[in-house]
Design a binder for these strands. Structure first.
Lengths: 229, 229
DNA sequence: TACGGATCGAGAGCACTGCTCTCGCTTGCC
DNA sequence: GGCAAGCGAGAGCAGTGCTCTCGATCCGTA
């Protein structure tokens, strides 16, 4: 093992600590992360941060990437705990896991799914991790189709829609009927909307019983998809 | 007419011009609106802006309020153009109007429905205007129920959900079955999710045919609600 | 082991932000 | 015709992201 890895190791630790402090700041102060405040918290000059992250956006990107992975882990883990054939149970577990993670990490959720920061453009590294939750959810549908517990709906899709969805299916779920994929994406869209409404205060005065409301609404989407009760 | 209104009038015009310039900045530079830049554009000192808006947040609030009203106007106007009994036509018209407005005013949409600015708390003035689009959509369901073209779904809601929805119905749509309201809110949540995904770049690499995809997905929600074809 | 280059932290500084305060000037009401 | 209210400009404060330079330290190599 080359001695050079000593320096590399403390550097990696430094990067981790910066990210940890930044995450803490994100949680308390909201989305406008201040590099100087992070530096202050670590007892170092603000300029020293730039030895580790070339810009504030790069730090944010690192946080976003880790957040995507954490959310993906949570959703996949929740899905994995349920019997493979219990489609509806898996669906609810995945949805709840996403919501629970979002409620536990509201600032990071806002970073992932809120309005994009003006100048900021999501680098390509983020697109795959970002797809993990929807892929997990559609994976449930694929499994259901495979073991006959779920049937493809007989929608007739407009040709451009069918073609777009066919391309997606070809890349991730070969053989999955486009009509089912469309309904799966509707479920994912609904999940995002439900979480965002709750987190961004849209349910504040109207829906006190959030847990039950969430379960019922995701259940409606399970109905739309055709998941057996 | 009292002469004092002269001063009041130029003041009102000044406020309007500031808002107009701010809206332009919002459209070009994104969400981080700079008071100083607005002042520069108007050829005045930044401190002078504070004669009209006590803080940057107040200016943002004014813009948000107007944006809510504009979106509400667009949705209601679109709904009004369709035959009252054509429930599905009204549904699609309302959805498309919201999307069209959002695509035409992406920065303002992000202001309304993106992640809330950290320190910012939506004042009560905004909650009623914010409810206009969902109220319009649920209004379509109420009309359908009234003339027998739409039936209440036979969902059995968990009691807390039923109670929360009953309270909402009592306030806005007396007599509307909770199960129908729940599905209407699912449609509204879906609409928000669809627009946000499209606007925030989530469909970039996957769905080239946005219009057709949008119509199909909102059609799926119309199916879930039970709107006749 | 001694050297030399890479790495690092600190500090000063630039341009920008929101916001406050003060100082005059204009304007419009009594 | 005065006089107070409203208004614009400027300076200034505290904060931001980011750059540059200057020493110090460390590590691999000769």
């Amino acid at each position: 093992m080359p001695a050079s890895s000593i320096r590399a190791r403390v550097r990696a630790e430094m990067i981790d600590e910066i990210k940890a402090v930044a995450r803490r700041h994100l949680a308390t102060d909201g989305a406008n992360l201040s590099l100087r405040a992070v530096a202050r918290d670590m007892g170092m000059a603000s300029s020293a941060i730039y030895r580790y992250f070339p810009s504030r956006d790069d730090l944010l990107t690192a946080l976003i990437l880790e957040a995507y992975e954490a959310l993906g882990d949570a959703v996949e883990a929740a899905d994995a705990t349920v019997d493979r054939h219990d489609l509806r149970g898996r669906w609810h577990a995945a949805c709840r896991a996403a919501r629970d993670w979002a409620l536990a990490h509201p600032a990071e959720y806002a970073l992932l799914y809120g309005s994009p920061v003006p100048g900021y453009a999501a680098p390509d590294d983020t697109v795959l991790p970002a797809q993990r939750p929807p892929l997990t959810m559609v994976g449930i549908l694929r499994d259901g189709l495979a073991d006959g517990r779920l049937a493809a709906p007989a929608d007739d899709l407009p040709e451009p829609v069918r073609a777009d969805l066919a391309e997606i299916a070809a890349g991730f779920f070969p053989g999955l009927p486009e009509s089912l994929l469309a309904r799966g994406m509707a479920g994912w869209t609904q999940l995002f909307g439900l979480i965002s409404f709750e987190l961004f205060g849209r349910l504040n005065r109207t829906i006190p019983h959030r847990d039950a409301y969430f379960d019922h609404q995701t259940g409606l989407m399970a109905d739309l998809i055709g998941l057996p009760r």
